[in-house]
Design a protein around this nucleic acid. Structure first.
Length: 480
RNA sequence: CGGGAUGUAGCUCAGCUUGGUAGAGCGCUUGCUUUGGGAGCAAGAAGUCGCAGGUUCAAAUCCUGUCAUCCCGACCA
């Protein structure tokens, strides 16, 4: 197939090359936009499925709202519009005429959904409203990269309305938990979870919580957010209800989102010099069967197909690489590049012995146990076990990587140096002051990724960055 | 948005300094031989030299502009 630069040498080039060469995306003829190709879309569908089933389990319903938002609506929540204004794309013409009012292409949908909620909600009996939308949004970014930051991207955005603050808080926390479960359990990317500082908070939110993953270059990647919006949007968009006490009140809202950026995290965290490495739960193809055929050997091909049928019946996502113009070696490299967790080789020798050669993608080539011979009869159960093992092994490798990048600093100089050197997520007792964060950023280009409560055993503490009394523990890092 | 680099066949690139009408390898097509880690030989097809202007008898090559991609920084949920 096609070679890629070593991951350790140049993560950026490696990342772009993998995205292109594993045929996840192509650059589109529009700056900053990508085409999500079938294999990339299949990955997105796996992530979608994992999230969607959990959304449904927790009582949410899917719906769809318009792409375009009238300017006057968008402008109602002051802080929100101010935060997004620089990134909004506008439609100014339609049907050959200049529009009387500009239409924003949604950068997120709080506004349009809130407007509809105002119409739908009359009474406490209408609450809570628990809606999720799978959608594309657009943010006019300056520097773009596949999955991590593109002008148009795919995501889901949940928007809920509640009668009480407590209920809204519980919702935001619940969804954060679901994100963590999917990131770690399905995508096998370990994350640190916490609240965003005031300067990193979503425009218009009271509280923003995030998942932060750590990339191999020591930069953090925000992988999902969950926002407690308080009554900010319900006041701006007049979303009210008559409560049981006959008082008219504003609802409490939340919003939460995960995007295809999560796929970028997966690619960077797990990939290696041979290309992608996919956790089995995310892999569109769990098992690739590669027939080893010399000349005319219809029996081998037939055996490969029969094996595929049997595995499919057992619930496996499996394909046979039947291309007759490629040699096995090429097919191995191809399966490696695409990150397919398990490869099975079937040749005449194996048929004669009643065996199969099974090779796992998560370990280095030639490592002990990477390539094993399995009795044909035992393959279904062997694969079930092996795929679980690979899922666990990739997560364990990623956890070890995260653990290496979780560092602490006792003194200001160490702290600044670690931030500057991209040592990882640098955890310190912190004052929680925007001015202090801005100063750190100016010196190191690192910001807080998220915050955790200060442990009782960690008192008394002073902010490592500025010396003021510490109020929280903060993870600082440079970020994508 | 600032600094740097790149744009020539599907891909990777040479050619540009010193203008003279486009090349290599890989890939692709066909045939034969091959097939348990990226096959070999032979023949063949394939490029408005990113785009738009300008200079010139003549531009891939020189000049201006513009678009896109990559790297670094700034910005950014």
């Amino acid at each position: 197939m096609k070679e890629i630069p070593p991951k350790s040498e140049d993560l950026s080039s490696w990342y772009t090359a993998v995205c292109l060469k594993a045929e996840l995306v192509s650059y589109a003829p529009v700056r900053g936009c990508v085409v999500l190709r079938p294999y990339g879309f299949a990955l997105w569908e796996r992530l979608q499925a994992a999230l969607d089933v959990r959304f449904k389990e927790t009582g949410h319903e899917n719906a769809y709202f318009p792409l375009l938002i009238p300017e006057s609506l968008l402008a109602k929540e002051g802080e929100h519009i101010e935060g997004f204004a620089p990134e909004v794309a506008w439609v100014t013409q339609g049907g050959g005429e200049t529009l009387p009012e500009r239409l924003a292409i949604r950068p997120t949908s709080e506004v349009i959904i809130g407007t509809m909620y105002a119409q739908w909600i009359q009474s406490y009996r209408d609450l809570p409203i628990l809606i999720n939308q799978w959608a594309n949004v657009m943010r006019w970014e300056k520097a773009t990269r596949p999955f991590l930051r593109t002008l148009e991207f795919l995501w889901q955005e949940g928007h809920t309305a509640h009668a009480t603050e407590q209920e809204a808080q519980a919702e935001a926390a619940q969804m954060l938990g679901i994100y963590r479960e999917v990131a770690e359990g399905t995508v096998a990317v370990p994350v640190v979870v916490g609240e965003k500082s005031s300067s990193e908070r979503f425009a218009g939110a009271n509280h923003t919580f995030s998942l932060e993953a750590l990339m191999p270059d020591g930069k953090a990647l925000q992988s999902a957010t969950s926002h407690e919006l308080g009554q900010n949007f319900s006041r701006a968009y007049d979303i009210t209800f008559a409560d049981t006490d006959q008082q008219v009140k504003h609802v409490w809202t939340t919003s939460w989102g995960m995007s295809w950026r999560m796929l970028g995290a997966m690619i960077m965290v797990h990939g290696d010099d041979r290309g992608l490495r996919l956790p089995p739960k995310m892999a569109p193809i769990e098992v690739m069967i590669i027939p080893i055929v010399r000349g005319e050997e219809p029996a081998v091909l037939a055996a490969a197909q029969a094996l595929a049928q049997e595995l499919r019946a057992a619930g496996r996502r499996v394909r046979v690489d039947e291309r007759d113009d490629k040699k096995p070696g090429f097919k191995f490299a191809d399966a490696d590049m695409r990150g397919i967790p398990v490869r099975i080789e079937v040749g005449a020798r194996d048929l004669a012995n009643g065996e199969l050669v099974v090779v796992r993608r998560d370990q280095e080539r030639g490592a002990e146990g990477t390539k094993v011979t399995v009795a044909r009869d035992a393959i279904v159960t062997h694969l079930a076990t092996l795929l679980n093992e690979i899922q666990a092994s990739l997560f364990a490798q990623a956890q070890a990587q995260l653990a290496r990048g979780l560092v602490t600093a006792e003194h200001r100089d160490d702290f600044l140096r670690l931030c500057r050197e991209r040592a990882g997520l640098v955890e310190i007792p912190w004052c929680d002051q925007p001015a202090c964060e801005a100063a750190v950023k100016a010196e190191t280009s690192a910001t807080t990724r998220n915050l955790r409560p200060l442990g009782v055993d960690q008192q008394p503490a002073r902010c490592v960055a500025c010396g003021e009394p510490a109020r929280v523990r903060a993870y600082f890092a440079q970020s994508y």
